[in-house]
Write a protein that binds this DNA or RNA. Structure first.
Length: 207
DNA sequence: AACTATGGCAACCGCCATCGA
DNA sequence: CTCGATGGCGGTTGCCATAGT
């Protein structure tokens, strides 16, 4: 089910309009990753608009920043969220609400985006299940609207929220013999692949 | 085999805060 | 003080693989 497991997800082909335009959108290509990676390794983070321009990427600064933080940045861990991490996320969410970046700070290597996605997936599953169990409490669930995110404040007291949150963890994940989710192959080429490429690229000094 | 529903994630969008001119 | 540029953050959307029918 994991999209990335197979690692064969096709790269989106940019439309001609996008190619001709000054700004590219959509999934990043390996070449773009390499350019951004090399640039930041050599010049450091920050001034993202400058990064976008100076590196020659037809991307917005925001896009570059997002790609770096969520994917290219060394130390980023992807997939395979452990039971401990799930519990921590749940507890922190009960405490902090949808402050994903704050929650991410407690989970080294995890990005706010990943945590957000994890939470949404879990929450939606929970909402779906509970609504099917209790037809009197039907909460319209729309796949496309993604409208069912529950926040700590939605849940009233934090303890109540915590009860709900605890139930989000599947039984399998609450045991010590937590079945580790398959390591996702994620973004079709591994970030690690960029390191040797970067090194091969020559004279740049890796910080 | 064909079609549909679902899960999962990357990336975009819009708003807001901050900072410097 | 005002205004524009920039970056950060949370919410949302779109795409695609896979499971289910």
């Amino acid at each position: 089910m994991d999209t990335k497991k197979t690692g064969i997800r096709k790269e989106r082909i940019p439309s001609q309009k996008e190619e001709e335009g000054t700004v590219r959108k959509g999934p990043w290509t390996m070449e773009e990753d390499l350019i951004l990676f090399n640039y930041i390794i050599n010049h450091g983070e920050g001034l993202w608009n400058s990064v976008a321009k100076a590196s020659g990427l037809k991307r917005t600064g925001k896009s570059c920043r997002l790609r770096w933080l969520n994917y290219l940045r060394p130390g980023v861990r992807r997939g395979n969220i452990t039971a401990e991490e799930q519990l921590l996320i749940i507890r922190l969410h009960a405490k902090l609400g949808n402050r994903w970046s704050k929650i991410a700070k407690y989970l080294p290597g995890r990005t706010d985006n990943e945590i957000k996605n994890f939470w949404r997936t879990k929450t939606q599953r929970h909402v779906k299940l509970s609504s099917s169990e209790n037809t009197n409490n039907i909460r319209h669930y729309s796949r496309n609207s993604h409208s069912s995110v529950i926040t700590a404040t939605d849940q009233g007291s934090s303890s109540k929220g915590f009860d709900m949150a605890e139930s989000l963890i599947s039984p399998a994940t609450t045991t010590t013999s937590f079945h580790v989710m398959e390591q996702s192959n994620d973004s079709y080429w591994n970030v690690e692949d960029l390191w040797p490429l970067q090194l091969l690229n020559g004279d740049h000094q890796v910080i």
